[in-house]
Design a protein around this nucleic acid. Structure first.
Length: 841
DNA sequence: AGCACGCCGACT
DNA sequence: GTCGGCGTGCTC
């Protein structure tokens, strides 16, 4: 019986977003599984694809069927569970199946077809020459040279060949045409597996021992080497022998030539942490509150039942220790755990804690790893060498086979939502995966998102109703710091035009004297927010985006934080030639400058995307601060998360309102969260902490409740607003963004789309039964220009769908987008669908 | 996404 | 008369 494989090919387009059937060749049967990665012929090309199903029959006429060309991995990179997950994702987030599949794997596994050249059998050489027996003698010297080069290696990648014989490309072409050289295509991975040359015994040990005894006295070095290998028991890295015994490779090779030992390339894992020692830690004794939380969760874990928990624990309440002990239990059950943290919280401190507790069983996945390192961490999981994965968003796809626990720390963070397709939320994926595995999900935060908190409180949603667990006290018994709100309007009135209020200025001075440390938060990088000519009012704007440029002092340049555009800072106004160019607004660079002026000799560590792009720079800056080589840590929101330094007793927020006026219904929530998080950095140990918050909106409820550390009051008030305005968690949202270079066309399209959604929604047939609809509502808002109306040279319009109930709005939105794209047929038109958006840009 | 097939303008 | 423009449609 022929076996048929259903394959999703690596072409992210509408026409190819379905399985294609292929015959499974005899040689692959028994190896090929659902989840295998394969190379397939597709039209005139060779592509990578994933097997999502196997069956005995095909709908496709047998004549059209082609066979799979190659199997790319011995162990399938995807499990059946992950293949199913990709189907769920593509439906929920309106993305192509291949995009969902690809997002689960390290980039190293995105192979592309390469051309390989080999020399044909002499008999099959064609062309006029072959009429004669003496074909070979008719080859030119150059041709001979190329042929023998290829023959030596059996097969050579075309790219390498053209690099070596660049000028003779026409000769290679002619040899191919004459059938002397043959070309084939095969999928090549982006990353080479790392290998180490390793030596092992090639004969049984007792034989080797005899050989050592009877070794000719002349070859003393060889005898030493062989003894060393026998003593170690084999699989010794060649490098090690060379350094330990001080011999050269030729000595070892001589032993190999005699057939005593074998030299092989062994595949190894790159370990990004191999040069680091982690101090082992043992579980701490839990506080009563922690213990209660732990008990509720562990009960469920012990029964191997699924369940969801939302831990609301104030900053410093020791949630991490609870996580660690839960993970411990899951490992003991021979199951595995995923720990998700926001990228910026994946600090060396956090990694150290996990490595210290679980050692080599931890795989760490974050964006700073090279693609090779990333791939190896992933393989440790896939091959069962790791039981714990800690990482940012995409670690939710860690290929564990027997998941027991998924933890999502700082659950409210918007970085858990991916902004590119597939626009998934790690929380949704976590819940879906946990259901498949009967695993427990723990969401933890000092400031849970309103969605999660509401779900726990109202139990309105049958997919997700976490049990709420609260921790009110800090693990070390310290008090939450006192928060002082400074009204910057008052400061200005009283003649203080500096960015530092008098109390903040005083407090920093005080810490400098006491040799305690300060953390300063300013959620805006760069130097100044905009550059304006005071004579004519000219403002420097990005030529590609409708956004003003930010001045960066170090490079004396103007940069766009959205598209990366950079240009030299002007000395005179490009519009009117005036010299009165002024920099307005404040960024971290400017604060740094100002600090140096106001506090001579102050040692400042600045941490923002501009100072942390280099590998390891994040860690270096934090170490510098921890080792008290700096008095003050200044940064954007990356200083607000998870840092724990005992000598920090002052936290200052330069401008609490920076996010408050964004056109985002979550602005208040985000402000509250940021203030609460950063306030939690102060006074975590024995020294009491103080927080100073500067703002132009001292009466805003998010600022006031944050200053009292009062999450519940904030939530109560914010929920009221959301209900009145009709925003989540009282409904769901989908944001549809249209973009095109031509504004007029774009507006027309956006209007068409909105109308079509309204029409189709009223038709109901896609919604299912009528009675269900009566409890549901759907509303379409817009179209309007996006908050950033032009980005990377493309105009942007958006509309928003609001609805209640479990309607499949992703499908509706996608369906309409397809209709529209069919009718317009303009490749430049992009329609992006974001279900449950986190940021309304 | 590529790549081929197919129907209308400026050239040997 | 042809070479080639990119619109349209297919890829197991």
């Amino acid at each position: 019986m022929t076996l048929i494989a259903q394959v999703i090919v690596d072409v992210p387009s509408r026409g190819t977003d379905r399985p294609f059937d292929y015959i499974v060749p005899e040689s692959m049967q028994g190896w090929l599984e659902v989840g295998s990665r394969v190379g397939v012929p597709f039209g005139p090309r060779t592509l990578q694809g994933f097997v999502i199903g196997l069956s005995g029959t095909s709908e496709t006429p047998a004549a059209k069927l082609k066979a799979l060309q190659e199997l790319l991995d011995l162990v399938p990179p995807l499990s059946e569970e992950l293949v199913e997950l990709s189907e769920w994702m593509s439906a929920k987030y309106a993305c192509h199946r291949i995009t969902a599949l690809q997002s689960m794997l390290p980039a190293a596994l995105k192979g592309k077809a390469e051309r390989y050249i080999r020399v044909a059998e002499r008999e099959s050489w064609v062309g006029e020459d072959s009429l004669f027996d003496a074909t070979a003698s008719l080859l030119t010297d150059e041709e001979e040279q190329i042929i023998s080069h290829i023959q030596k290696q059996q097969e050579v990648r075309m790219e390498l060949l053209s690099r070596r014989f660049g000028e003779q490309a026409h000769i290679i072409k002619s040899l191919l045409q004459r059938g002397i050289l043959l070309e084939s295509r095969s999928i090549r991975d982006k990353v080479q597996k790392k290998t180490v040359r390793t030596v092992s015994l090639h004969l049984p040990e007792d034989e080797i021992r005899t050989i050592i005894e009877e070794f000719p006295a002349k070859a003393k070095r060889q005898q030493e080497v062989l003894t060393y290998i026998a003593d170690t028991g084999g699989d010794v890295p060649l490098k090690e022998i060379m350094t330990v015994l001080g011999v050269t490779a030729s000595t070892v090779k001589a032993l190999a030539d005699k057939g005593y030992i074998a030299i092989m390339d062994m595949e190894v894992y790159r370990d990004p942490y191999q040069d680091r020692n982690f101090t082992p830690t043992t579980p701490f004794t839990l506080t009563d509150e922690q213990q209660q939380v732990y008990n509720s969760i562990i009960n469920r874990i012990n029964k191997r039942e699924k369940g969801e928990y939302l831990i609301h624990g104030i900053t410093g309440s020791g949630k991490t220790e609870v996580y660690l002990q839960c993970i411990q239990r899951v490992i003991e059950q021979d199951r595995q755990a995923i720990m998700l943290v926001p990228e910026i919280a994946l600090t060396p401190q956090m990694v150290e804690r996990f490595k210290g507790r679980f050692g080599d069983r931890v795989a760490v996945m974050h964006s700073r790893l090279s693609s090779g390192e990333r791939y190896d961490e992933w393989r440790k999981i896939r091959e069962g060498k790791s039981q714990v994965a800690i990482g940012a968003r995409s670690a939710i796809f860690a290929p564990f086979s027997n998941l027991g626990l998924i933890i999502m720390d700082e659950e409210h963070e918007t970085s858990y939502k991916q902004e590119e397709s597939p626009k998934y939320h790690a929380r949704d994926v976590a819940i879906h995966r946990a259901h498949q595995h009967n695993a427990v999900v723990i969401l933890g935060s000092a400031t849970p998102s309103l969605e999660s908190y509401y779900a726990a409180r109202s139990q309105a949603n049958d997919e997700f109703m976490p049990t709420l667990l609260e921790i009110h006290g800090r693990a070390l018994g310290s008090e939450l710091p006192a928060v002082e709100i400074i009204d910057m309007r008052e400061e200005l009135k009283e003649g203080n035009r500096s960015m530092f209020s008098r109390p903040l200025h005083q407090a920093i001075e005080d810490r400098l004297e006491k040799k305690q440390q300060t953390v300063l938060l300013l959620n805006r990088r760069g130097h100044s927010t905009f550059v304006m000519c005071r004579t004519c009012g000219y403002v420097a704007e990005c030529p590609n985006c409708d956004i003003s440029l930010t001045y960066h002092q170090r490079s004396n340049s103007l940069r766009c934080h959205y598209c990366g555009h950079a240009e030299p800072a002007p000395q005179i106004c490009p519009e009117c030639g005036s010299e009165h160019i002024r920099y307005f607004g404040t960024g971290t660079q400017r604060v740094e400058e100002e600090l140096a002026k106001l506090f001579p000799g102050i040692r400042v560590v600045r941490m923002d995307v501009d100072t942390t792009t280099q590998k390891g720079s994040h860690e270096k800056l934090l170490n510098q601060f921890r080792d008290k080589k700096a008095d003050l840590l200044l940064g954007t929101q990356m200083v607000a998360k998870g840092l724990d330094f005992p000598d920090v007793t002052l936290v200052g927020v330069i401008a609490a309102d920076s996010a408050l006026h964004l056109p985002d219904f979550r602005a208040a929530e985000k402000t509250f969260q940021l203030l609460t998080q950063v306030a939690g950095r102060a006074g975590r140990h024995h020294l009491p902490g103080e927080v100073i918050v500067q703002t132009y909106n001292p009466e805003h409820y998010s600022v006031i409740h944050a200053s009292h550390h009062d999450y519940h009051s904030f939530v109560r008030e914010e929920l009221k607003h959301r209900q009145i305005l009709g925003y989540p968690p009282y409904c769901r949202l989908a944001l549809i963004t249209f973009s095109h270079e031509k504004l007029a066309l774009l507006v027309r399209i956006a209007e068409n789309y909105t109308q079509m959604i309204k029409d189709q929604a009223s038709k109901l047939d896609w919604l299912g039964s009528l009675e269900r609809f009566s409890n549901e509502a759907l509303d379409v808002l817009g179209p309007v220009a996006s908050p950033i109306p032009r980005l990377k040279n493309r105009y942007r319009f958006q509309c928003m769908i609001k609805w209640r109930g479990d309607m499949d709005v992703a499908k509706l939105a996608e369906h309409v987008a397809e209709q529209l794209q069919d009718s317009v047929r303009d490749k430049e038109l992009l329609i992006s669908i974001d279900v449950d958006p986190q940021v309304l840009m």
